[in-house]
Design a protein around this nucleic acid. Structure first.
Lengths: 189, 189
DNA sequence: CGCCCCATGTAATAAGTTACATGATTTT
DNA sequence: AAAATCATGTAACTTATTACATGGGGCG
């Protein structure tokens, strides 16, 4: 008796990496694993992370499943993958699927939560530190935005995600300011 | 030759569940694994997730490491854990630690990113669906906020996290509206 | 007595991270 | 020739998810 897994049965959630890769291949055109790792790092990074050690094996699986194909081979074993029609279909399917309330995971927000466990005076320091981190992120995203909108016309890749990232980072900073003010009031009382 | 892991060497990132549990025990007082699973579900859920199958083993480890102790035992094998001074110290340490830019992971935002891969007309539907999901979350958070602020004085648990959740959810809705408008403009052109 | 909730766990699998390992090409 | 970067992979481990499994206690 063998339990059918993944392709066969269960796994309704998850598989995000798979679709992230299909999405990148769809939007950025044919790319190598190396390219995709880079793309991940400086586009999708603030939303989902993956290193090359996760990307290469996943590309193999995608290839085995016929969702991508090797379009060409370059210099040092460089393989350029392209999304296939089946791949495109699966991606669309996944995006259109409903009832999916996938994983949410933010260590920054978790810390925000846990400061309730600290005395106000100490909590302030923690919030300030996290705030500084997000400040840096905002600068990074703004630079990227500048760079992108400076480019061609209006249709750059990841435009909506970048916009979302900017909004959320700014919101986080606002929250941090409000929280610090509140903590100060409590500490001072 | 044995490779020292975790307690001994590496693992600088990660361990978030561990600290989430310590934080809950610190803020909510002595609780059983079951209680903690419940607490997770309706307090910290929008920030970090964990099911009981992850919680129980982690509690065992925390106990083995002396960061929590069994304060009492109840009816059906119910064990009530309390955070120890060492546990409190570790939690503070972790919160104060710097240079930590932990994992960020949001499937909603990932989908937002990937819509670039869809023709505008289809993308609108996707964004609308995700938007609806966040609308439900907002209602949920608002209800919780209502409930909490209705309670005692001002010092409820997870107050800051809830505030952050509300702000971020509202921001997401704003983004969705702007994006839908933009997509409509593009689809109509 | 039967049902629902309390309460705890384990097993199997999937997903993610860090470190290890190797070698080719381009740039300085 | 050395250094940086391109390029791909594997191994070992941790973390997370889903399903399986069991039994006590309260209530109608």
């Amino acid at each position: 008796m063998s339990i059918l897994t993944c392709q066969g049965v269960y796994m309704i959630g998850g598989m995000s990496l798979r679709y992230a890769l299909l999405g990148l291949l769809s939007a950025a055109g044919p790319s190598s694993g190396y390219d995709l790792a880079k793309l991940f790092e400086n586009s999708i990074n603030h939303v989902w992370r993956a290193g090359h050690s996760q990307i290469y094996p996943e590309l193999s699986k995608l290839h085995a499943d016929g969702l991508i194909e090797v379009e060409a081979e370059g210099p040092r074993g460089r393989k350029i993958y392209a999304i296939t029609p089946q791949g495109r279909a699966e991606l669309h399917q996944w995006l259109l699927e409903k009832g999916r309330e996938g994983p949410v995971r933010s260590e920054g927000a978790l810390q925000a939560f846990l400061i309730s466990a600290l005395p106000p005076a100490e909590a302030i320091g923690v919030v300030e530190r996290v705030r500084a981190m997000f400040e840096r992120r905002l600068a990074d995203l703004e630079a990227r935005h500048e760079q992108m909108s400076g480019g061609s016309g209006g249709d750059y890749f990841g435009r909506y995600a970048l916009d979302l990232g900017l909004r959320q980072t700014r919101t986080f900073l606002e929250w941090a300011d409000a929280t610090i003010a509140d903590l100060r009031a409590r500490a001072g009382s």
